[in-house]
Design a protein around this nucleic acid. Structure first.
Lengths: 248, 248
DNA sequence: ATAGAATCGGAACGAGCGACCCGTTTGCTG
DNA sequence: CAGCAAACGGGTCGCTCGTTCCGATTCTAT
């Protein structure tokens, strides 16, 4: 049902629903999907039962808070699509999304889950975002600012990766001015330039296993369990390390 | 105590310890830190009590299985440090670590946790790995193959990011031959080349807040709660989206 | 004002997990 | 072979968290 259709609800119900949504928004932003539902209820000043009266499950509440943020990104991307100068606009938008999402653990969780195929915030929302972003990408590619061999799936993965990187970089206790550093690095990877790796032409030895020490391709094992090392040297190295291992 | 000091243990204890370690290694590789300890015990064919007899906590068991993998990486990096041709060696080593770790959820979890500063697998292990990796990095930089403005902390974050990206890319159901694609992209970002962003010279407006729609810097709010949008247009856009939001 | 219905809120439930303990079994040693 | 100490393992406890339920409360239409 639409939120605009307000006369069907009692006034206190409307008020409490707004309180729950706001509390959930802040709690999810700070702690991600892992925040206990009881804490959201406590922050909203209501009981847990009230939360369940308005949202059928914790996941539904999470979706309700995260969908609006993604729609905001989508709308912004649509606006920017009409802009001239598509290259800088594309890079600025990407950086912006990463910067805003990295302060919002709920968005990180949602993007990560969507990336792993586990979770769709709401039918169409992720697709709409992808579509809007794809327009920005292809404009930037037409303008020659972005390499031709990346697609929207790469971009989705890059977003997830940038969030991880910024979080990892922030966790090492380096000065705060470094925020955006990894994103800038990622943008450099996207810029079109001579001499970069041809992504669509990578060597494809992915089907065979690889040595766990040196990464060399292994011949397919036909006898019993699969081989783990490419030869005597690497096998010995692995066992040398294992023998050194101390007990916890 | 050292594992080599075997006479102090009964034969069945030694056997069970090995069974537990092996079961833990596989279980953690497949499911990460989240796997229940009972399942590890079941796979090893022992009771949960036996696991606790050998390892004081689940985390200690996790460390014991993950430390040896990291030491393997460290040893490999040390070997490669003596190689001529440091540029290709550096990139091949990075790709190798990502490829191997992306199949091992335990390593992903450990790296992620270490990146967030929550977790040190064992005193010195992470440091040793960083040191060995730093040698490879500086050799590659001296050879002119890697840009000068990245450091070991960047590399640590990049590793975490690449793991996230490969996982996200793999989750979208694209063909398996795409493994390593995101890592190749990141390697391109690391290559020294003209015209890349100067990482140490990024604009530093990080202290002020930023508009949640367009990312513009916000003047510091002196009145009550902080501002969230840069002006009327962005505020209206945010509320337009919020009004459209449907109930879960 | 009042009756009736919608809503509230927190107690209670159940599932899942980590940690621990103790009766039983097993291997080592003299 | 016998005795004993060490190890085994499953049963149990406590905790957290999502969810449900129901008596108490509050709102609104008449």
């Amino acid at each position: 049902m639409l939120e605009g259709d307000v006369t069907r609800f009692r006034a206190d119900a409307r008020r409490n629903r707004a309180l729950v949504l706001q509390a959930a928004r802040f709690a999810f932003e700070e702690q991600g999907l892992g925040v206990p539902l009881g804490e959201i209820a406590r922050r909203a000043g209501v009981g847990a039962g009230t939360v369940y009266r308005h949202f059928p499950s914790k996941e539904a509440l999470f979706r309700a808070t995260v969908v609006e943020r993604i729609e905001l990104f989508t709308d912004t991307a649509r606006d920017l699509a009409e802009s001239p100068d598509p290259g800088p606009v594309f890079f600025r938008f990407l950086s912006s999304v990463v910067r805003l999402a990295s302060r919002n653990k709920a968005l990180c969780d949602a993007l990560e889950a969507a990336g792993a195929g586990r979770f769709e915030p709401s039918p169409g929302v992720g697709q709409d975002f992808d579509d809007a972003l794809e327009v920005l990408l292809s404009r930037a590619q037409e303008a020659g600012a972005v390499r031709q061999d990346v697609g929207i799936a790469d971009l989705r993965a890059l977003l997830v990766g940038c969030l991880s990187m910024e979080r990892a970089r922030a966790g090492t206790g380096t000065e705060a001015g470094d925020q955006g550093r990894m994103t800038a690095l990622m943008c450099d990877a996207l810029r079109s330039r001579q001499g970069v790796t041809k992504l669509d032409d990578l060597p494809g030895n992915r089907n065979g296993s690889q040595c766990e020490v040196c990464g060399a391709a292994l011949a397919t094992a036909r006898t019993g369990r699969p081989a783990r090392y490419c030869g005597g040297a690497c096998r010995q190295k692995a066992h040398r390390v294992r023998g050194r291992t101390r007990q916890g």
